[in-house]
Amino acid sequence: MRDILSSTRTRLRRALRGGDSDDDAVTDDGRVATDGGTAAGGAAGAAGTGGLLDRLDERIGEDFTESAVFWLPPFLLMGLFVYGAIAWNFVISLTDYQGFVGPDYSDLDFEMYVRAANDAGVIEATVNTFLLVVSFTAVALAFGLVLAILVDRDIRFENTFRTIYLLPMSLSFVVTAQFWLWMYNFNNGVVNILLGTVGIGPINWIGNSQIVLWAVVFALVWQFSGYTMVVYLAGLRAIPREHFEAARVDGASTLKMYWRVIVPQLKGSTISAAIVLMVFALKAFDFLYSLVSGYRPPNGTDILATKMVREAYSVNNWAYASAIAIILFLMALSIIGPYLYYQYSKGEL
């Protein structure tokens, strides 16, 4: 990728330098001719007719325009439907669009963002989103790491365990939500029955706004720690056996060996798993939606995504919902951005 970029850049620079670099361009074309065989036409065109394509070729280089057939359609589709939609959403958030009359683009301001900053509901949803993302990611990572370390210790039926732990990942959020709704049932849910046998409870998991968020986090951890385990397991397998042995011969206890030698080497796995988990946590809307089959999630679990959908489709506050969407987008960007930069600085992008 980088190579292509840099070669495009040098071509651009060469093209911009203009006349005195012609010799250069010819030798370059000559070299291309040996593999492509189309250089002669290109060079002749540049000297002669000077059509649009030829001029583009001259400016940017032949590969760029010739390969447009392949990259242009997805580029346009992505640009329109993803980035265009985001941009349009942003514009809508600047209007006062609500109800059934279309948006008025003549009067743009940041009123909706001011309103969001002063809305206790949005602030609570932001806090909940933050708590959900952080606690879910941290617990799922820690739990997955422990599972991976246990499974990595050459146990019997390793593949079976791996499949069992990974299986919840294959379920849809809707299934998980319904499943845990039954598990958390106040009267006859498995969780309360089990806790009842040791004299605890019954606890109103879903109804108590203090604990419902943690009940949701637990259910999500149940679903995703298998995935974290697989990512960590791959990371552990990439660490040479000698590192474990060297640490043991060096006198480290098992705990110290993992803590000081093995876990630090799992940085890459941690980052990539954390990104996936965070993105899923931000998308927990479907889980909460199916938990209650409606836009109003249990008290204490309102996150930005549910708040946004409710504002848009329950009360038709389109502009306000768009503003919340942009806030959510910026939160997601603040997670992905540093990751992309990290990848870029390591030369993997």
Partner: peptide, 13 residues
Amino acid sequence: IAMVFQSYALYPH
């Protein structure tokens, strides 16, 4: 005891 491994097994981090 101290051991030197064929692959050196230096901790990369």
